[in-house]
Design a protein around this nucleic acid. Structure first.
Length: 262
DNA sequence: ATGGTCGACTTTCGA
Protein backbone atom coordinates (compact mmCIF):
# COMPACT_ATOMS: atom_id res chain seq x y z
CA UNK A 1 0.00 0.00 0.00
CA UNK A 2 1.46 3.40 -0.96
CA UNK A 3 1.79 5.71 2.03
CA UNK A 4 2.64 9.37 1.42
CA UNK A 5 4.40 11.18 4.20
CA UNK A 6 5.35 14.84 4.57
CA UNK A 7 7.54 16.80 7.00
CA UNK A 8 7.16 20.53 7.61
CA UNK A 9 8.67 22.98 10.07
CA UNK A 10 5.52 25.04 10.65
CA UNK A 11 6.97 27.78 12.94
CA UNK A 12 3.88 28.01 15.19
CA UNK A 13 1.11 25.52 14.55
CA UNK A 14 -1.50 27.80 16.13
CA UNK A 15 -0.66 30.82 13.95
CA UNK A 16 -0.53 28.61 10.86
CA UNK A 17 -3.28 26.05 11.51
CA UNK A 18 -4.97 27.40 8.37
CA UNK A 19 -1.89 26.69 6.27
CA UNK A 20 -1.67 23.17 7.69
CA UNK A 21 -5.28 22.42 6.71
CA UNK A 22 -4.65 23.98 3.28
CA UNK A 23 -1.73 21.59 2.71
CA UNK A 24 -3.69 18.60 4.03
CA UNK A 25 -6.66 19.39 1.75
CA UNK A 26 -4.52 20.03 -1.36
CA UNK A 27 -1.98 17.23 -1.02
CA UNK A 28 -3.69 14.79 1.35
CA UNK A 29 -0.57 13.03 2.64
CA UNK A 30 -1.37 10.02 4.81
CA UNK A 31 0.98 11.35 7.49
CA UNK A 32 2.23 14.88 8.26
CA UNK A 33 5.11 15.47 10.67
CA UNK A 34 5.38 19.00 12.08
CA UNK A 35 8.21 20.73 13.92
CA UNK A 36 8.44 24.03 15.82
CA UNK A 37 4.80 23.85 16.84
CA UNK A 38 5.66 26.33 19.62
CA UNK A 39 2.68 25.17 21.65
CA UNK A 40 1.73 22.94 24.57
CA UNK A 41 0.00 19.84 23.16
CA UNK A 42 -3.32 20.77 24.79
CA UNK A 43 -3.38 24.08 22.90
CA UNK A 44 -2.78 22.59 19.42
CA UNK A 45 -6.08 22.83 17.47
CA UNK A 46 -6.20 19.06 17.00
CA UNK A 47 -9.99 18.98 16.39
CA UNK A 48 -9.47 20.87 13.10
CA UNK A 49 -7.10 18.16 11.85
CA UNK A 50 -9.29 15.41 13.27
CA UNK A 51 -12.28 16.77 11.37
CA UNK A 52 -10.52 16.50 8.00
CA UNK A 53 -9.47 12.90 8.57
CA UNK A 54 -6.28 13.09 10.63
CA UNK A 55 -7.59 11.27 13.68
CA UNK A 56 -4.34 9.78 14.99
CA UNK A 57 -1.91 12.09 16.76
CA UNK A 58 1.42 11.77 18.55
CA UNK A 59 2.78 15.04 19.87
CA UNK A 60 5.12 16.63 22.40
CA UNK A 61 5.00 20.31 23.22
CA UNK A 62 6.16 23.13 25.41
CA UNK A 63 5.09 26.72 25.78
CA UNK A 64 6.57 28.97 23.13
CA UNK A 65 9.46 26.83 21.90
CA UNK A 66 10.18 23.62 19.98
CA UNK A 67 7.35 21.10 19.78
CA UNK A 68 6.76 18.18 17.38
CA UNK A 69 3.60 16.46 16.16
CA UNK A 70 2.65 13.58 13.86
CA UNK A 71 -0.81 13.74 12.29
CA UNK A 72 -1.98 10.53 10.61
CA UNK A 73 -4.98 9.34 8.63
CA UNK A 74 -3.76 5.78 9.21
CA UNK A 75 -4.11 4.11 12.60
CA UNK A 76 -0.99 5.07 14.59
CA UNK A 77 0.00 4.72 18.22
CA UNK A 78 2.31 6.95 20.21
CA UNK A 79 5.71 5.21 20.33
CA UNK A 80 7.38 7.49 22.86
CA UNK A 81 10.06 10.13 22.72
CA UNK A 82 13.83 10.44 22.99
CA UNK A 83 15.63 12.98 25.17
CA UNK A 84 18.93 13.38 23.34
CA UNK A 85 21.68 15.59 24.84
CA UNK A 86 19.58 15.57 28.03
CA UNK A 87 17.95 18.81 26.94
CA UNK A 88 14.49 17.92 28.24
CA UNK A 89 12.89 19.75 25.32
CA UNK A 90 10.08 18.70 22.95
CA UNK A 91 12.31 17.75 20.02
CA UNK A 92 11.26 14.18 19.22
CA UNK A 93 8.19 12.00 19.06
CA UNK A 94 7.68 8.62 17.46
CA UNK A 95 4.59 6.93 16.04
CA UNK A 96 3.96 3.29 15.16
CA UNK A 97 1.65 2.15 12.36
CA UNK A 98 -0.39 -1.05 12.56
CA UNK A 99 2.16 -3.03 10.52
CA UNK A 100 4.94 -2.03 12.94
CA UNK A 101 6.50 0.74 10.84
CA UNK A 102 8.00 3.35 13.15
CA UNK A 103 8.13 7.07 12.28
CA UNK A 104 10.64 9.27 14.13
CA UNK A 105 9.96 13.00 13.97
CA UNK A 106 12.92 15.20 15.03
CA UNK A 107 13.58 18.88 15.57
CA UNK A 108 17.37 19.11 15.98
CA UNK A 109 18.66 22.21 17.86
CA UNK A 110 19.53 25.08 15.51
CA UNK A 111 22.81 25.69 17.34
CA UNK A 112 23.05 29.48 17.60
CA UNK A 113 25.18 31.75 15.44
CA UNK A 114 28.80 30.98 16.39
CA UNK A 115 30.11 27.56 15.30
CA UNK A 116 32.31 27.06 18.37
CA UNK A 117 31.17 25.05 21.39
CA UNK A 118 33.55 26.95 23.71
CA UNK A 119 32.05 30.33 22.84
CA UNK A 120 28.51 29.14 22.15
CA UNK A 121 26.96 26.42 24.33
CA UNK A 122 24.04 26.06 21.90
CA UNK A 123 26.42 24.80 19.23
CA UNK A 124 27.77 22.21 21.66
CA UNK A 125 24.21 21.09 22.45
CA UNK A 126 23.52 20.65 18.74
CA UNK A 127 26.64 18.51 18.27
CA UNK A 128 25.78 16.50 21.39
CA UNK A 129 22.26 15.97 20.09
CA UNK A 130 23.45 14.61 16.74
CA UNK A 131 26.08 12.47 18.50
CA UNK A 132 23.27 10.93 20.56
CA UNK A 133 21.35 10.19 17.35
CA UNK A 134 24.43 8.32 16.14
CA UNK A 135 24.84 6.46 19.42
CA UNK A 136 21.18 5.54 19.80
CA UNK A 137 20.51 4.21 16.29
CA UNK A 138 23.98 2.69 16.04
CA UNK A 139 23.45 0.63 19.20
CA UNK A 140 19.95 -0.50 18.22
CA UNK A 141 19.83 -0.62 14.43
CA UNK A 142 16.31 0.16 13.25
CA UNK A 143 14.23 -1.75 10.70
CA UNK A 144 11.05 -0.72 8.88
CA UNK A 145 11.60 2.80 10.16
CA UNK A 146 11.36 6.33 8.80
CA UNK A 147 13.19 9.32 10.28
CA UNK A 148 12.10 12.81 9.28
CA UNK A 149 12.34 16.35 10.50
CA UNK A 150 14.11 19.65 10.64
CA UNK A 151 17.63 18.37 11.22
CA UNK A 152 19.01 21.94 10.93
CA UNK A 153 21.99 20.68 8.89
CA UNK A 154 22.43 20.86 5.10
CA UNK A 155 24.90 18.02 4.53
CA UNK A 156 25.79 18.22 0.83
CA UNK A 157 27.49 20.93 -1.22
CA UNK A 158 24.39 21.12 -3.40
CA UNK A 159 22.13 21.40 -0.33
CA UNK A 160 23.12 25.07 0.05
CA UNK A 161 23.20 28.05 -2.31
CA UNK A 162 26.96 28.49 -1.85
CA UNK A 163 29.06 25.74 -0.33
CA UNK A 164 32.10 28.00 -0.05
CA UNK A 165 30.26 30.92 1.54
CA UNK A 166 28.50 28.72 4.09
CA UNK A 167 31.41 26.60 5.30
CA UNK A 168 31.65 28.72 8.47
CA UNK A 169 27.92 29.26 8.83
CA UNK A 170 26.06 27.10 11.37
CA UNK A 171 24.08 24.40 9.47
CA UNK A 172 26.82 23.67 6.92
CA UNK A 173 30.11 23.59 8.88
CA UNK A 174 32.22 20.43 8.37
CA UNK A 175 31.87 19.41 12.02
CA UNK A 176 28.08 19.43 11.63
CA UNK A 177 27.85 17.75 8.23
CA UNK A 178 30.31 15.05 9.35
CA UNK A 179 28.30 14.45 12.53
CA UNK A 180 25.06 14.13 10.57
CA UNK A 181 26.65 11.76 8.04
CA UNK A 182 27.99 9.66 10.93
CA UNK A 183 24.53 9.50 12.53
CA UNK A 184 22.98 8.52 9.19
CA UNK A 185 25.54 5.77 8.60
CA UNK A 186 25.37 4.42 12.17
CA UNK A 187 21.63 3.85 11.84
CA UNK A 188 21.88 2.52 8.30
CA UNK A 189 19.54 5.31 7.15
CA UNK A 190 19.05 6.09 3.47
CA UNK A 191 18.50 9.74 2.48
CA UNK A 192 15.27 9.15 0.55
CA UNK A 193 15.06 12.68 -0.86
CA UNK A 194 18.50 12.37 -2.43
CA UNK A 195 17.85 8.78 -3.52
CA UNK A 196 14.97 10.14 -5.61
CA UNK A 197 16.55 13.48 -6.60
CA UNK A 198 20.30 12.74 -6.75
CA UNK A 199 21.47 15.76 -8.72
CA UNK A 200 21.24 19.50 -8.44
CA UNK A 201 20.63 22.23 -5.90
CA UNK A 202 17.81 21.36 -3.51
CA UNK A 203 16.53 23.55 -0.67
CA UNK A 204 13.73 23.37 1.92
CA UNK A 205 14.35 26.62 3.83
CA UNK A 206 14.76 30.26 2.84
CA UNK A 207 15.40 32.93 5.50
CA UNK A 208 12.71 35.48 6.33
CA UNK A 209 15.43 38.10 6.21
CA UNK A 210 15.88 37.91 2.47
CA UNK A 211 13.62 40.61 0.93
CA UNK A 212 13.04 38.51 -2.18
CA UNK A 213 13.66 34.90 -1.12
CA UNK A 214 12.45 33.41 -4.39
CA UNK A 215 14.64 35.47 -6.74
CA UNK A 216 17.67 35.51 -4.42
CA UNK A 217 17.19 31.75 -3.83
CA UNK A 218 19.73 31.59 -1.01
CA UNK A 219 18.26 28.40 0.39
CA UNK A 220 19.42 25.42 2.39
CA UNK A 221 18.11 21.81 2.63
CA UNK A 222 17.56 21.51 6.37
CA UNK A 223 14.51 19.20 6.29
CA UNK A 224 15.03 15.53 5.59
CA UNK A 225 13.31 12.20 5.02
CA UNK A 226 15.39 9.14 5.81
CA UNK A 227 14.36 5.48 5.88
CA UNK A 228 15.88 2.12 6.64
CA UNK A 229 16.87 0.18 3.47
CA UNK A 230 13.86 -2.17 3.68
CA UNK A 231 11.55 0.85 3.24
CA UNK A 232 13.85 3.04 1.15
CA UNK A 233 13.90 0.39 -1.58
CA UNK A 234 10.19 1.00 -2.13
CA UNK A 235 10.29 4.80 -1.81
CA UNK A 236 9.46 7.16 -4.65
CA UNK A 237 7.97 10.50 -5.57
CA UNK A 238 10.13 12.73 -3.37
CA UNK A 239 9.48 16.44 -3.77
CA UNK A 240 9.82 19.73 -1.95
CA UNK A 241 6.79 22.01 -2.26
CA UNK A 242 8.66 25.26 -2.84
CA UNK A 243 5.47 27.14 -3.71
CA UNK A 244 4.24 26.70 -0.12
CA UNK A 245 7.08 29.02 0.99
CA UNK A 246 5.31 31.66 -1.11
CA UNK A 247 1.89 31.28 0.56
CA UNK A 248 0.55 34.18 2.64
CA UNK A 249 2.18 34.48 6.09
CA UNK A 250 4.35 31.42 5.35
CA UNK A 251 6.66 29.33 7.43
CA UNK A 252 10.29 29.87 6.42
CA UNK A 253 10.39 26.10 5.61
CA UNK A 254 8.73 24.28 2.71
CA UNK A 255 7.20 20.81 3.22
CA UNK A 256 9.11 17.76 1.99
CA UNK A 257 7.21 14.71 0.66
CA UNK A 258 7.97 11.07 -0.08
CA UNK A 259 5.88 7.98 -0.81
CA UNK A 260 6.60 4.52 0.63
CA UNK A 261 5.27 1.06 -0.11
CA UNK A 262 4.15 -0.11 3.33
C1' DA B 1 31.34 43.93 9.29
C1' DT B 2 26.39 44.52 9.55
C1' DG B 3 21.63 44.03 9.15
C1' DG B 4 17.99 42.05 7.39
C1' DT B 5 12.55 39.29 9.50
C1' DC B 6 9.74 36.48 11.98
C1' DG B 7 7.15 34.34 16.48
C1' DA B 8 6.74 34.13 21.16
C1' DC B 9 7.06 33.44 27.58
C1' DT B 10 7.51 40.57 23.57
C1' DT B 11 10.50 45.97 26.62
C1' DT B 12 14.33 40.33 24.59
C1' DC B 13 15.46 35.84 22.92
C1' DG B 14 15.61 32.10 19.66
C1' DA B 15 15.68 31.09 14.88
Amino acid sequence: MPVTLATWNINSVRLRAGLVTELLRQEAPDILCLQECKSPVDKIPLEIFHNIGYRHIAARGEKGYNGVAILSKLPMEDAGDLNFAKLGQARHVAGRLEDGTVIHNFYVPAGGDVPDREKNPKFGQKLDYVADMQKHFGADRPHRSILVGDLNIAPREDDVWSHKQLLKVVSHTPVETEALNAAQEAGGWVDVTRQDIPDGQLYSWWSYRSPDWNAADKGRRLDHIWATPDLASGASGSRILREVRGWEKPSDHAPVFATFDI
